[in-house]
Design a protein around this nucleic acid. Structure first.
Lengths: 339, 339
DNA sequence: ATTTAGTGTGAATAAGTATGCACAAATTGA
DNA sequence: TCAATTTGTGCATACTTATTCACACTAAAT
């Protein structure tokens, strides 16, 4: 059965005329070993094609140098961007990225449960919810959890998020400055902390300013649902003249519908604002006004947290980072000069 | 140092009054163990929060159930789509996905080399080249390599690709049918098999039909380079009336430049055709004519290959799948009715 | 009743590496 | 020169689980 024969430290030891311990030390930075012995061992190892078996190494020191990353919908460019940045940062930090789908739908949680037992250094969930049973599993398996772009009431998990309240309020102020009369809110997944924070801050600010209550539709943070929701909004009698979409994916769907199905001049007849400031938002085809999330900074914080949690697995920390409003052509910033 | 205490099979054994062997057998499907003993052990394990350590398990049976996936530029939606599909398929097949950046740039190869020694079941490279030294490393480490959307002369690697020659010829025929007079080819990364195959088939077909030789620019398969290349093309005196871009990412960059920087009516004044048929190509904002790659089928074949290579690591297989032309608004299919 | 086959279990070992401990050799200090 | 320290190395063990072997026992068969 086991027909794959690998070169082991013993093979190298025999060939180089040393003990297996010496081989191990040659590959362990800072270990006590003579320089020339080390050289000879490394040369022999190179010649035989030996590299330490990382599984065995992980088995001994109890940590795998692997970070689990659960991703939801990769149709969302914000996750893709995050995944790219995270992949690079983890690699530079000498950590491996074990990726798995974690849609929160059927069949995903068993997968997470399985993966937990790789002695993960940490589990990062990208915009994925943390069920209480999963939290319990992680606690049992002693795997620190970091929620990315989401929080939870559960105190066992760390999180890295943007300042959604400030973002939503800034956007509300921007839209009100443009003197829009009928403003809609295209919500993300109901119950997700991200949507709850953006929505409540948005509605609260509108109420503070005595603006009429926004029309509400739900786009699930996804393109298809947002497309349908935008159609409903634009078909309704009291069609809005501005839509705040809870993320950029939905905003781009909204632009597509408004421009190509309803022939609207986005930015003049209808303002559309998104959230995240994904790279695509800057494309001239969309020129989407958006509130940026500092993706690189959020990833940096995530990696810092991973290191911190390796030292103190039981601790937890909640990080919140600021973004900024990026005004582009999809929204008018000031009162229109002609009615 | 090792302050994370885990529940081991011994703990469960002691608690359940059996031996460690019995615990192992309780978790090994098909092992000889009495049903009631098994039940009792599983219940105890559940109570103690025990799950087998997958690292130790992998160490023993010599395979990790982990598949390494090297990704290049995640700015390319085709890779993102592939990654999403692959992630789901591997998960369903009980395999884990270890992702790492493999741009082919500096600093990436050491990472691959490191990762190889996780006893990977296979290494899948998404549109990433396989250097001869890396091929040698993989051979030494007995890790089968699968090149996805690329091939190599090296006979040690398996590959899954689309039929680039047929695709390029079909596109050439499509453009010639539209009676375009000046056709440009926006090339991908020089030397990549994907670009070589598309380019040579495209040029060969044009020559066969006695069409003038295409203008050539290089866009590196990337958006930024393609943007600059398109500017050069459209600024030149003999501006082309059609551009075949070697992938959709470059085609979308070309559309952005043509439409928003040069004010061209894409599809009437200038035809733009891509390759891959990524989801974005269907958006009305682009409506990009493209030659589809059967992403799901390619991923299915990849997973099938992984299983085949687990059984016979030394073998290799080259799979080529057919796509089809998807005509949309960015190109005219027939002769324009008015000159 | 006795052999045969089969079942369930534990002891022992193996997978490949890291590391504490002991000891020899080399170096330092007086 | 001798004690004290430092350096380099090997031996043995540990990490955790899967699996072979041997043994006790039950059930079937003659």
């Amino acid at each position: 059965m086991n027909d794959r024969i690998f070169v082991t430290a013993h093979d190298v030891a025999r060939e180089a005329g040393v003990s297996q311990s010496a081989v191990s030390r040659a590959f362990t930075p800072g270990a006590r070993i003579a320089a020339d012995t080390r050289e000879r061992i490394l040369a022999t190892a190179e010649r035989l094609g030996y590299r330490p078996n990382l599984l065995a190494r992980s088995l001994i020191n109890g940590r795998s140098n692997i970070v689990g990353v659960g991703v939801g919908d990769l149709g969302n460019p914000f996750f893709v961007q995050t995944l790219q940045l995270l992949s690079n940062s983890l690699n530079e930090a000498g950590l491996r990225l074990l990726m798995f789908p974690a849609e929160g739908d059927a069949g995903s949680e068993p997968s997470i449960r399985e993966i937990l037992h790789y002695r993960l250094d940490a589990l990062v969930l990208l915009s994925v919810g943390l069920s209480s049973t999963l939290a319990e599993e992680c606690r049992k398996a002693q795997v620190p959890v970091i929620l990315y772009n989401r929080t939870t009431r559960d105190q066992d998990a760390s999180s890295v998020i943007g300042d959604n309240a400030t973002g939503a309020r800034t956007i509300a102020a921007h839209l009100l400055a443009g003197e829009h009369r009928r403003i809609a809110y295209l919500a993300g997944t109901e119950g997700s902390s991200t949507n709850v924070q953006r929505e409540s801050a948005f509605y609260a600010y509108m109420a503070e300013q005595d603006a009429p209550e926004p029309i509400r539709e739900n786009g699930q943070f996804r393109m298809e649902a947002a497309t349908a929701a935008t159609r409903r909004l634009l078909t309704a009698r009291d069609r809005p003249d501005a839509i705040f979409c809870a993320n950029d994916t939905m905003a781009i769907a909204a632009i597509n519908v408004a421009r190509h199905e309803f022939g609207l001049d986005v930015g003049r007849e209808l303002s559309i604002v998104g959230y995240d400031d994904v790279p695509m938002a800057a494309w001239p085809a969309f020129s989407l006004t958006s509130y940026s999330q500092p993706a690189q900074a959020m990833v940096d914080e995530t990696v810092r947290l991973i290191h911190a949690l390796r030292a103190a697995p039981a601790s937890h920390e909640r990080v919140m980072l600021e973004g900024s409003l990026v005004v582009r052509g999809s929204s008018r910033a000031v009162r229109p000069h002609a009615a």
